[in-house]
């Protein structure tokens, strides 16, 4: 059938014209930029003057002479771990509560999801104001309860905690929503059968809910990890890497090598490209390791 069908010329031309828009968009703004990055990581180019082929020199620089970048990589992982360890359990617990037939569940669901509607950059602005040393709402509350106001942004650890809080605030609702969808797809018959067999709620939770939620959990966690490792806008508007690069993350560091930052000129584009490639590889390796280690939870009683 497939082979026998003769290609209709008019139809083929129409097909090409109809996908022209999407394909052009993809090629010009996704494929060509990717090729550009991959090509330039072997060159040295400062934006002016000549483009020199330097081979793997840029990568040697990334691995041997870029302590700031590796510091940013470490920060990124600390951020992702620190926030997910709160965000994911919180989202799970809320999903479990709201999946039961509780009155007002759609209200709660809508409210928890609401922060996802706010621009990430704006969330940075809001939390910057919220945690300001003088007049910031958080410090005012601390003073109200007799505590000492904290200089949140002048210390790497507390500044990082603020970024985590802002990110959790934004994302717990959306993850809760994913978990709820997963929970709703579990057949109520299973619980009924378990109840008849005399299984307690706790037992049902561990023998039915958790294993059957496995695939959803795996997917949600994957997205959450990659999303956290790619954090950009939030850090740019909340701390911009301050103090002294203590909250710099991979993406903001790359951004700054390309575009420059306060008092720092844009650096070599080849070096920036090499950083981009290494970062993409890090993300790829994380993905592979993650999928390998969680493979088991994906294969549940089908």
């Amino acid at each position: 059938m497939k082979k026998k069908r003769k290609l209709n010329t008019v139809r083929t031309i129409q097909s090409y014209l109809m996908i022209l828009g999407s394909v052009t968009g993809l090629v010009v703004f996704v494929v060509i930029p990717l090729v550009w990055i991959v090509r330039f990581c072997l060159f040295s180019y400062k934006g002016w003057g000549s483009i020199k082929l330097v081979g793997f020199e840029n990568f040697i620089r990334v691995f041997e002479r870029s302590p700031k970048y590796w510091k940013a990589v470490l920060n990124t992982f600390i951020f992702a771990f620190g926030k997910l360890i709160v965000e994911i359990p919180l989202a799970l617990v809320l999903a479990f509560i709201l999946a039961s037939r509780l009155k007002g569940r759609s209200f709660f669901r809508a409210v928890y999801f609401m922060p996802s509607m706010v621009s990430v950059a704006i969330i940075g602005v809001i939390f910057r104001y919220f945690f300001t040393h003088q007049g910031g709402v958080i410090n005012e509350f601390i003073k109200l309860f007799g505590g000492e106001p904290v200089m949140w942004f002048s210390n790497g650890t507390t500044a990082m905690i603020v970024i985590m809080i802002a990110s959790i605030w934004q994302n717990f609702g959306i993850n809760m929503l994913f978990f709820m969808t997963g929970l709703q797809s579990i057949s109520p018959d299973l619980y009924e059968a378990a109840s008849i067999d005399g299984a307690s709620n706790t037992r049902q939770f561990f023998t039915i809910t958790i294993p059957l939620l496995g695939p959803v959990l795996q997917m949600v966690l994957m997205n959450a990890i990659l999303g956290s490792l790619k954090v950009t806008d939030l850090v740019l508007t909340l701390t911009n890497g301050r103090p002294a690069g203590e909250t710099e993350v991979m993406m903001t560091y790359i951004y700054k090598t390309f575009f420059g930052a306060e008092g720092m000129a844009a650096q070599d584009y080849g070096y920036g490209s090499a950083l981009t490639v290494v970062t993409a590889l890090i993300l790829g390796v994380v993905t592979i390791i993650y999928l390998r280690t969680t493979k088991k939870s994906g294969e549940v009683y089908s």
């Binding site: 010009v28 703004f29 990055i37």
Partner: peptide, 20 residues
Amino acid sequence: FLATMFIGAGSITIFPVLRI
């Protein structure tokens, strides 16, 4: 289309996009 979805362009290629 499928391949680029996994690479997840976004801000990683923002510099060459801006050059274009």
